[in-house]
Design a protein around this nucleic acid. Sequence first.
DNA 1: TTTTAAGCGAGACGGTACGTCCCGTCTTTAG
DNA 2: CTAAAGACGGGACGTACCGTCTCGCTTAAAA
Lengths: 190, 190, 190, 190
Amino acid sequence: MHRGNRHGRSEQARLAVLHAADDLLVENGFARLTVEGIAQRAGVAKQTIYRWWPSKTDILFEAFVTDAAEEITPPDTGDLTRDLITYLGALARFLTASDAGAVFRALTAESQHDPALAARLRQEHWTGQRVRDRQLLQRAVERGDLPAMADLDTIVDRLVGPLYYRALVTGQEITTEFVTELVRATIDAK
Amino acid sequence: MHRGNRHGRSEQARLAVLHAADDLLVENGFARLTVEGIAQRAGVAKQTIYRWWPSKTDILFEAFVTDAAEEITPPDTGDLTRDLITYLGALARFLTASDAGAVFRALTAESQHDPALAARLRQEHWTGQRVRDRQLLQRAVERGDLPAMADLDTIVDRLVGPLYYRALVTGQEITTEFVTELVRATIDAK
Amino acid sequence: MHRGNRHGRSEQARLAVLHAADDLLVENGFARLTVEGIAQRAGVAKQTIYRWWPSKTDILFEAFVTDAAEEITPPDTGDLTRDLITYLGALARFLTASDAGAVFRALTAESQHDPALAARLRQEHWTGQRVRDRQLLQRAVERGDLPAMADLDTIVDRLVGPLYYRALVTGQEITTEFVTELVRATIDAK
Amino acid sequence: MHRGNRHGRSEQARLAVLHAADDLLVENGFARLTVEGIAQRAGVAKQTIYRWWPSKTDILFEAFVTDAAEEITPPDTGDLTRDLITYLGALARFLTASDAGAVFRALTAESQHDPALAARLRQEHWTGQRVRDRQLLQRAVERGDLPAMADLDTIVDRLVGPLYYRALVTGQEITTEFVTELVRATIDAK
DNA sequence: TTTTAAGCGAGACGGTACGTCCCGTCTTTAG
DNA sequence: CTAAAGACGGGACGTACCGTCTCGCTTAAAA
């Protein structure tokens, strides 16, 4: 088995750390997530962690980026309203009920006090996510379902913003009715 | 001078702690905000802090609740569109540029990993804030500027949600154009 | 009941403190004897203790001086050897098995690092105790049972020294045989 | 330089702690000897102290056992009386005037309230010290200077007991005359 | 085939902050 | 004026993790 030597790092150790961090975050919350705890759970030396990750948020980041992108990729069936309702429902579930969402919430929380993490989230997550979010609307424009001069960026924010707001900020429940009304009022009224 | 005895705690110590916590948060960020640091800055014994506040977030909470409410109270001039644009602009400034907003962001961040804090924020902040946010729309309904059967809760979320989203989640800038377009699309189209 | 007012100090509080200190010392040992603990046990305010006793050793001192003197007063039946054996046996029991002895051991221990306490012990205890110890020998001299030019001070130390040594320093058991042999060798051989 | 790793602790840190404890005890007395103070003086982390020593008395104990044994080892010139006078004089100086004696007094004092320390002192100090003390008499017996059936244990206690008593308990001065008379009365009279 | 150097588990290290305990001082109200 | 009550500023406690470091083992490419 590959355990790490002069010719490269141990993939086994890397995965053990990522999974341990993920598990411990979900089990105990971010506040009780420690590098020592991750090392012990992963059966790995602390130094191995510090060799490859500058901080515990970087571990979470790596765990997040790899498996979170596809969880919140919008569908594309050609029916804009239906696609949006499906997508926003999946987004709500991601934010409030999934393990990957827990990691995302932890990272977003930390980014409030950590500008470097905030920048990294913007570059490595939001850039791509915004493109994915726009694509759904872009294709609707191309189909003629939305007017060509619509400000897609603003529309994206008007659609997903209230969901993130409820999920991360006020903690209000996100019902099917809320999502339906949100989509109807934002899209159909145009 | 009142120094605290059997008949009550020291108001002087209480204020010194609140101000020290506020100052240190703004100066150094949440990560470097320590109870020992607050005690030292406030000229207060650590035990005095632990006697009255269970954790450093409770200190921030008390500092926040007292002075933050009025900072984000919507105006009421009778012109809904103008009031909304004014209010959302003030909200954006609060979230991104004010000291009280820094405390708010720190509390919201911590509430991601602290359900008790999340519950307290809902009860002691959001309950009141939601009422204040609705009032602006409620008065417009009473004036006949909005249809009577409008779902005001959803409209509130559609107005403020995108702002919190940009300010706390994606970190995008909140321009005047964005606010104007948001209000126009949400209100005027009705 | 007298509880202390402008006409003088409360004897009730004084006794409650002395007994509480005594009890707590025997129950928990000196290390866990605290002023707060004594105050609580005695049902007395901390300030009342600090008003009358400079430190917790002073409380113990007062408790000791009052009731310990008579516990180790030598007998006087006219039979020097028998009196000495009786006395040294009582002294051994005092040092190793009595509550008053526990207080004495604690005070002697503290006096190793507290010169003021050491001085007070010398003046208020040892001065008198030495006189009491000498009297036994003095009367034997007067009866002609000891030579007139005997150095009584040294004889006292040669008699009690080994007991204190075993009880406080090495922790060896003090048997009847040890006491008997000690007295025989010290007195009878003269 | 050896800094401590899985293969053993740092000898450098160990010695720094022992010397710091010794110095601070002599400078400030036992009451003001704190683990934090030792750590700071030794340039060592508190955790390093707690990792290897259960309490500050264990630090003193280690400092004492290593260097105190030889300070109070009796001489052996073949002249019992002279050897005893020399030895008891050195013992008196050790108890009242040496740094190692200060550590010894502190440990003996603490052992009054700490049975574990008392047991450790008996096992690791007194067992050996008693053998060393007896040897002087044992050799005198072998030379015929003392009767073969003498109870050497009791004689040891009768010689050193009064010294410990004066040094640790009553605080009386230990003069040359006192030592001379003690040896004369104990030995020569046999 | 042997050497060698990087990655590894282990864990001691100097350090910071934690939350608790107790110190000795103080202020208030009651008797 | 003494007492009970108890909040206060202070200091040390013993613990948990931080991020750094050294050690001896494993291992695969280089010599």
